[in-house]
Amino acid sequence: MLPADMVGGVSAARAANLEVTGEALSAFVKRVDGVLRDLEGSPGNPTRVGAQTIKQGSLASGSVSRFPEALDLYLEYNRVHEKLTSLSKMLHLQIEAIGIAVQGAHVGFDNLEEEQRRRFWAIQTQIEAIQDADGGKQRGAQSDTTTGDL
Protein backbone atom coordinates (compact mmCIF):
# COMPACT_ATOMS: atom_id res chain seq x y z
CA MET A 1 0.00 0.00 0.00
CA LEU A 2 1.28 3.48 -0.87
CA PRO A 3 1.59 6.21 1.75
CA ALA A 4 -1.01 8.98 1.58
CA ASP A 5 1.54 11.49 0.26
CA MET A 6 2.44 9.33 -2.75
CA VAL A 7 1.14 10.29 -6.19
CA GLY A 8 1.60 7.74 -8.94
CA GLY A 9 4.35 6.00 -6.95
CA VAL A 10 6.25 9.25 -6.34
CA SER A 11 5.93 11.42 -3.25
CA ALA A 12 4.22 14.76 -3.76
CA ALA A 13 7.47 16.59 -2.93
CA ARG A 14 9.40 14.63 -5.56
CA ALA A 15 6.60 15.04 -8.10
CA ALA A 16 6.81 18.81 -7.62
CA ASN A 17 10.57 18.65 -8.23
CA LEU A 18 9.95 16.80 -11.50
CA GLU A 19 7.60 19.44 -12.86
CA VAL A 20 9.23 21.53 -15.54
CA THR A 21 8.21 24.95 -16.67
CA GLY A 22 7.52 25.68 -20.30
CA GLU A 23 10.36 28.18 -20.20
CA ALA A 24 12.85 25.55 -19.04
CA LEU A 25 11.70 23.13 -21.75
CA SER A 26 11.96 25.83 -24.40
CA ALA A 27 15.49 26.64 -23.27
CA PHE A 28 16.40 22.95 -23.40
CA VAL A 29 14.95 22.60 -26.91
CA LYS A 30 17.07 25.55 -28.04
CA ARG A 31 20.18 23.91 -26.55
CA VAL A 32 19.41 20.58 -28.24
CA ASP A 33 18.78 22.38 -31.56
CA GLY A 34 22.11 24.19 -31.15
CA VAL A 35 23.96 20.94 -30.52
CA LEU A 36 22.33 19.41 -33.59
CA ARG A 37 23.30 22.41 -35.74
CA ASP A 38 26.87 22.22 -34.42
CA LEU A 39 27.04 18.51 -35.21
CA GLU A 40 25.71 19.04 -38.73
CA GLY A 41 28.37 21.67 -39.41
CA SER A 42 31.23 19.71 -37.86
CA PRO A 43 33.55 16.99 -39.13
CA GLY A 44 31.45 14.64 -36.96
CA ASN A 45 28.51 14.98 -39.35
CA PRO A 46 27.55 11.41 -40.41
CA THR A 47 27.91 12.29 -44.09
CA ARG A 48 31.41 13.71 -43.60
CA VAL A 49 32.50 10.79 -41.44
CA GLY A 50 31.16 8.35 -44.02
CA ALA A 51 33.07 10.06 -46.82
CA GLN A 52 36.48 9.62 -45.15
CA THR A 53 37.50 6.29 -46.64
CA ILE A 54 40.73 4.86 -47.99
CA LYS A 55 41.36 2.38 -50.78
CA GLN A 56 43.12 -0.89 -50.12
CA GLY A 57 45.81 -0.05 -52.69
CA SER A 58 46.73 3.06 -50.69
CA LEU A 59 48.44 0.93 -48.06
CA ALA A 60 50.34 -1.51 -50.24
CA SER A 61 51.58 -1.29 -53.77
CA GLY A 62 52.16 -4.81 -54.85
CA SER A 63 51.41 -8.23 -53.50
CA VAL A 64 49.56 -8.50 -50.22
CA SER A 65 51.74 -11.51 -49.40
CA ARG A 66 54.77 -9.17 -49.18
CA PHE A 67 53.09 -6.92 -46.64
CA PRO A 68 50.15 -8.72 -44.98
CA GLU A 69 50.08 -6.15 -42.18
CA ALA A 70 48.88 -3.58 -44.73
CA LEU A 71 45.80 -5.70 -45.38
CA ASP A 72 45.23 -6.08 -41.64
CA LEU A 73 45.55 -2.32 -41.20
CA TYR A 74 43.11 -1.69 -44.05
CA LEU A 75 40.56 -4.14 -42.65
CA GLU A 76 40.85 -2.70 -39.13
CA TYR A 77 40.58 0.88 -40.45
CA ASN A 78 37.38 -0.04 -42.30
CA ARG A 79 35.95 -1.78 -39.23
CA VAL A 80 36.61 1.26 -37.04
CA HIS A 81 35.42 3.64 -39.75
CA GLU A 82 32.13 1.78 -40.11
CA LYS A 83 31.63 1.86 -36.34
CA LEU A 84 32.39 5.61 -36.14
CA THR A 85 30.00 6.30 -39.02
CA SER A 86 27.31 4.29 -37.25
CA LEU A 87 27.92 6.04 -33.92
CA SER A 88 27.89 9.47 -35.57
CA LYS A 89 24.59 8.73 -37.30
CA MET A 90 23.14 7.31 -34.08
CA LEU A 91 24.17 10.45 -32.14
CA HIS A 92 22.63 12.68 -34.79
CA LEU A 93 19.36 10.73 -34.69
CA GLN A 94 19.24 10.60 -30.89
CA ILE A 95 19.71 14.36 -30.58
CA GLU A 96 16.95 14.97 -33.12
CA ALA A 97 14.64 12.55 -31.26
CA ILE A 98 15.40 14.26 -27.93
CA GLY A 99 14.41 17.60 -29.45
CA ILE A 100 11.06 16.18 -30.59
CA ALA A 101 10.52 14.40 -27.25
CA VAL A 102 11.17 17.60 -25.31
CA GLN A 103 8.66 19.47 -27.44
CA GLY A 104 6.22 16.60 -26.87
CA ALA A 105 6.80 16.81 -23.13
CA HIS A 106 6.02 20.51 -23.28
CA VAL A 107 2.82 20.41 -25.33
CA GLY A 108 1.89 16.73 -25.09
CA PHE A 109 2.95 14.18 -27.69
CA ASP A 110 -0.58 14.02 -29.14
CA ASN A 111 -0.46 17.80 -29.67
CA LEU A 112 2.69 17.70 -31.80
CA GLU A 113 2.31 18.21 -35.52
CA GLU A 114 1.68 14.97 -37.40
CA GLU A 115 5.00 15.35 -39.26
CA GLN A 116 6.93 15.62 -35.97
CA ARG A 117 5.27 12.48 -34.58
CA ARG A 118 5.98 10.63 -37.82
CA ARG A 119 9.61 11.81 -37.78
CA PHE A 120 10.02 10.67 -34.16
CA TRP A 121 8.84 7.15 -35.01
CA ALA A 122 10.92 7.10 -38.21
CA ILE A 123 13.98 7.95 -36.11
CA GLN A 124 13.17 5.06 -33.75
CA THR A 125 12.96 2.72 -36.75
CA GLN A 126 16.30 3.99 -38.09
CA ILE A 127 17.95 3.53 -34.71
CA GLU A 128 16.67 -0.05 -34.50
CA ALA A 129 18.00 -0.74 -38.01
CA ILE A 130 21.43 0.61 -37.06
CA GLN A 131 21.46 -1.49 -33.91
CA ASP A 132 20.44 -4.58 -35.88
CA ALA A 133 23.21 -3.88 -38.41
CA ASP A 134 25.67 -3.63 -35.52
CA GLY A 135 24.70 -7.13 -34.49
CA GLY A 136 21.90 -6.12 -32.14
CA LYS A 137 24.39 -5.87 -29.29
CA GLN A 138 22.68 -2.93 -27.63
CA ARG A 139 19.13 -4.25 -28.13
CA GLY A 140 20.10 -7.84 -27.39
CA ALA A 141 21.23 -7.05 -23.86
CA GLN A 142 18.01 -5.16 -23.18
CA SER A 143 15.70 -7.83 -24.55
CA ASP A 144 17.47 -10.59 -22.60
CA THR A 145 16.77 -8.79 -19.32
CA THR A 146 13.19 -7.92 -20.19
CA THR A 147 12.25 -11.47 -21.20
CA GLY A 148 14.14 -13.11 -18.39
CA ASP A 149 16.46 -14.95 -20.80
CA LEU A 150 20.08 -14.74 -19.72
Score class of each variant (00 low, 15 high):
L2N: 14
L2Y: 10
D5H: 10
D5N: 09
D5I: 03
M6V: 08
V7D: 02
V7E: 07
G9Q: 09
V10T: 11
R14V: 13
A15D: 06
N17F: 09
L18V: 08
L18E: 13
E19L: 13
E19S: 11
V20E: 14
V20Y: 06
T21R: 02
T21G: 09
G22V: 08
A24R: 10
L25W: 00
S26N: 15
V29C: 06
K30Y: 05
V32K: 02
V32G: 00
G34N: 09
G34D: 13
V35E: 01
V35D: 02
L36G: 04
L36C: 03
L36A: 12
L36V: 06
L36D: 06
D38C: 07
L39G: 00
L39F: 01
L39P: 01
E40H: 07
G41M: 02
P43L: 10
P43C: 05
P43R: 05
G44S: 13
P46D: 00
R48K: 15
G50L: 00
G50T: 04
G50S: 01
T53N: 01
K55R: 11
Q56P: 03
Q56M: 07
G57H: 05
G57T: 08
S58N: 11
L59I: 07
A60V: 14
G62Q: 02
S63I: 02
V64C: 03
S65F: 13
S65K: 11
R66H: 07
F67P: 02
F67N: 13
E69H: 06
L71D: 14
L71R: 13
L73N: 13
Y74A: 05
E76S: 15
Y77E: 10
N78H: 13
R79C: 07
H81A: 07
E82V: 09
E82W: 10
T85N: 02
T85F: 00
S86L: 08
L87V: 09
S88Q: 01
S88V: 01
K89I: 00
K89R: 08
L91H: 06
L93G: 01
Q94W: 04
I95F: 11
E96P: 01
A101I: 11
G104W: 03
A105F: 11
V107W: 02
V107E: 09
G108P: 07
G108Y: 10
G108R: 05
N111C: 12
N111Q: 15
N111L: 15
L112I: 14
E113D: 15
E115P: 04
E115C: 06
Q116N: 12
Q116L: 15
R118P: 03
R119Q: 04
F120I: 09
F120M: 15
W121E: 15
A122T: 04
I123K: 01
T125H: 03
T125V: 12
E128H: 05
I130G: 00
Q131Y: 08
Q131N: 13
Q131R: 06
A133Q: 11
D134M: 13
D134C: 09
D134A: 11
G135V: 07
G135N: 11
K137T: 14
Q138W: 10
R139Y: 09
R139P: 05
S143Y: 13
S143N: 08
D144A: 15
T145C: 08
T146L: 15
T146P: 04
T147L: 12
T147G: 03
T147R: 04
G148M: 02
G148F: 00
D149P: 01
D149Y: 10
L150D: 06
L150W: 07
